[in-house]
Amino acid sequence: MTDWYYDENGAQRGPVSEGDLNTMLVNRLLSPHTLVWTATLGSGWKPASQTHLEAAPQAVKPPPLPSAKNVPPPLPATINPSLPHQLAGVAASTGEPPSDFHPERVPAHDHYAKWMAFWPLLLMVVDMVLAADGNNIEYGPYSRVAPFLAVWGSLIFAVLDARNVYNSWRNPKRMALVPFILLSPLVYFWRRAWLLKTGYAYMGIWAGCALVYAIAFAVMAQS
C-alpha cells in the first residue's frame, strides 16, 4: 500500500492512502494543483495533476501507520503574507531594524552634529572679520551674512546628520528629525537626543556657543 502526503495551506498532511487522496481530488476537496508526495517521487513534491492521481475513486481504506522508512522531504518554501508583519513585531521587541528596513549601511558618526553645535562660534569669527574691516555688523551692507549662514548652515548640517542617523540604522522607525531644525538647533538637538537615547551634550554646547556669540555681537555692535 502506498502512503501519500499532501500540502494544506503550507502544512504537511498525511499519510493517507492513494484511494483516500483520489477521493478528495475527485470530490474537489483538494485542488489539482495541490502538492503531493509519495516515496516513488523521490525528493520532490509535485502537483497532483502531474501524477497518476485524479483517477476514479477507489475503495476507501484506512491509511497505514506512519513508517520511518518513507519520510517525506520538507515542503518547498512558500511566502507567508503575514511574515513581514511578524518580522516587524519581532524587530520591535528585540530592538533590531525591521526586515523591510534596507538603507545603505554606513558607519555611525556625529561629525555634522558637532559642526552644527559649534556653528555659532564660526559665525562669531565671520562677524569679527567683517567688523575688523570696518563694516557695521548690525546695520551695514554685510549685516545679513551671519544670519544667512546661521540658517542655511544649520539646515545643511541637520540634513546631513539626519541622513547619517538613518543610513547607520539608528532610526529604523523613520521618525522625523530634520523638521525640528526649523524651530531651532536647540530643539533639533533635543529631538536627536530623545531619538538616539543619548545625552544632551550637543544642546549644551550649542547653547553655550550661542551665548558667547550673542555677547561678542553686542560688544562689536557697540564699538
Rank of each mutant, 00 (worst) to 15 (best):
L196I: 10
W115G: 08
M220G: 05
A201P: 06
A216T: 01
A214H: 00
N70E: 15
L155W: 10
Y213T: 01
W37H: 03
H33A: 14
A92G: 10
Q86D: 11
N27C: 07
L121N: 07
I205Q: 04
V126M: 09
H111S: 11
A39K: 14
M116Y: 05
L149D: 06
Q50E: 15
T78H: 09
D161N: 11
A56S: 11
H85P: 00
H102P: 01
G204K: 07
A113Y: 04
E8Q: 14
N135G: 07
F180G: 05
N171P: 00
P66I: 05
W45E: 01
L53Q: 03
A39P: 06
L75P: 00
P98R: 00
I79S: 00
V219F: 00
L30S: 07
S17T: 15
L122H: 08
P120D: 05
V129C: 10
A150G: 10
D133T: 10
M203E: 12
H52E: 15
D3I: 09
T38E: 13
W194V: 14
L196V: 08
Y188P: 01
Y6D: 03
L123P: 04
K114Q: 13
V36A: 02
S67M: 09
M203A: 10
M220R: 08
P72R: 03
A48W: 02
A108M: 03
A201L: 15
G89F: 09
M24V: 08
A55M: 10
V159K: 05
V212Y: 00
V187G: 02
A146I: 01
V129F: 08
A56D: 11
D133V: 06
G204Y: 09
W37E: 03
L211Y: 04
L35Q: 08
I181G: 06
P15W: 05
A150M: 09
P141G: 03
E54N: 15
Y202Q: 12
P120T: 04
W115Q: 09
K46L: 14
A59S: 11
L41Q: 05
Y139M: 12
E138Q: 14
L53I: 03
A158I: 02
F101K: 02
Y200W: 14
H102R: 14
N22F: 04
P81V: 00
L149T: 06
K197I: 06
N135Y: 14
F101I: 02
L35F: 02
G153Y: 06
V60S: 12
T2K: 11
A207I: 08
I205Y: 09
T38Y: 10
T23K: 13
E8C: 08
A39Y: 11
R28N: 13
F189R: 05
G44A: 15
V26L: 12
E104F: 12
P81K: 02
P179M: 07
D3A: 15
S49N: 10
V219I: 12
W45N: 02
L75A: 01
W169I: 09
A117D: 03
D7E: 15
E96R: 13
L186Y: 09
